[in-house]
C-alpha cells in the first residue's frame, strides 16, 4: 500500500437544498493514477473542487498527509501549489503568453526567481510539445495546445498530485489524442494523478484504479480490470453499457 497523500473522509457538499456529494470516502496514494468516471451531474467536478477548496465542503474532511486542509494553521496556498488542477475549459490566463502562464505561479507563489522560473517553464513546455509556442497568447492556440500549456503550467509548480477535470471534454476529437498522450507520459513517469474522464480507454489502460460515481456517492472503486469486466454494482454495469457501445479505444 503506497503512502496516502490525500484522504477524503465522509465528504458531503450541498448547494442550498441540493445535496451534490454524500458521504464520499476515498484516498489517493503516492504514484497512483486514479480515474473518476460517472455520468454528467454525478458530482465528479464538485468532488475535485472540494479537494482544493475551490468549493467549501459542507461536511466531512480532506486530509493532506494526515492534516486537515481546513485547519486554522494549514497553509492553503502552498497546498494548492502542491495539488495542481487542470480544467476542462483550460483556463489559461488570457492576458499572458504561454511562457508567462507557466512562470507567474512559480514567481508569486513559490517565490522562485524569474530566470529559474523561465527555465523550469521552458522544460515543461518542451515536455508537452509546446516549446515552439512560448510567446503565443491563449487566443492564438488551438484547444489541444491550450490544454497542453495548462498541463505545463500545473507541472511547473512541481505538484505532488495533479487533479484533472475532464481535460479532453472541451476538445475537438482530433485533438483529444495529443492531450491524452501527454497524460499517459505523465502517468508513466510516476506522477500521482486523479483524472475525471469520459475517455474509457484511458481509464482502462492507464489508470491503477477506477472510481465510479453516481448521484453524489461512490458506487464502486476497483482496478480497471474489475470495473470494466466484472463490475459488482448494477449501476456501474448500466453506465458502462451506455458509454461503451463501442469498444474503448486504446490510447
Amino acid at each position: 500500500m503506497p503512502e496516502t497523500i490525500i484522504e477524503v473522509r465522509h465528504l458531503s457538499k450541498s448547494f442550498g437544498d441540493h445535496e451534490v456529494l454524500r458521504d464520499v470516502d476515498f484516498s489517493v496514494g503516492k504514484g497512483e493514477v486514479v480515474s473518476i468516471i460517472g455520468s454528467s451531474g454525478s458530482g465528479k467536478s464538485t468532488l475535485l473542487r472540494c479537494m482544493n477548496l475551490l468549493e467549501k465542503p459542507t461536511g466531512g474532511e480532506v486530509l493532506y498527509h494526515r492534516r486537515n486542509i481546513r485547519d486554522a494553521g494549514f497553509d492553503l496556498h502552498m497546498y494548492r501549489a502542491h495539488v495542481g488542477m487542470v480544467f476542462q475549459q483550460f483556463n489559461l490566463f488570457n492576458n499572458m503568453t504561454a511562457l508567462e502562464n507557466c512562470v507567474v505561479g512559480q514567481m508569486k507563489v513559490l517565490k522562485r526567481s524569474r530566470a529559474e522560473s523561465e527555465k523550469i517553464a521552458l522544460d515543461y513546455l518542451c515536455k508537452v510539445g509546446m516549446d515552439l509556442y512560448v510567446h503565443a497568447k491563449p487566443r492564438q492556440l488551438s484547444g489541444g495546445q491550450k490544454q497542453r500549456v495548462a498541463i505545463a503550467r500545473a507541472l511547473a509548480m512541481n505538484p505532488e498530485v495533479l487533479l484533472f477535470d475532464e481535460p479532453t471534454s472541451a476538445l475537438d476529437p482530433e485533438m483529444v489524442g495529443e492531450v491524452l498522450a501527454v497524460m499517459k507520459d505523465l502517468a508513466a513517469s510516476g506522477l500521482t494523478m486523479l483524472v475525471v474522464t469520459h475517455e474509457m480507454g484511458f481509464a482502462r489502460d492507464v489508470c491503477d484504479r477506477v472510481v465510479f460515481m453516481d448521484g453524489g456517492v461512490i458506487v464502486e472503486s476497483d482496478t480497471p480490470e474489475v470495473i470494466f469486466t466484472q463490475p459488482k454494482h448494477p449501476r456501474t454495469r448500466e453506465f458502462l453499457a451506455r458509454v461503451l457501445q463501442s469498444e474503448p479505444q486504446p490510447v
Partner: peptide, 12 residues
C-alpha cells in the same frame, strides 16, 4: 475560471 485557475496554483 481565470480566477479559479489562479487560486488553484496557490495565488492569494
Amino acid at each position: 475560471g481565470q480566477q479559479e485557475a489562479a487560486l488553484a496554483i496557490g495565488m492569494t
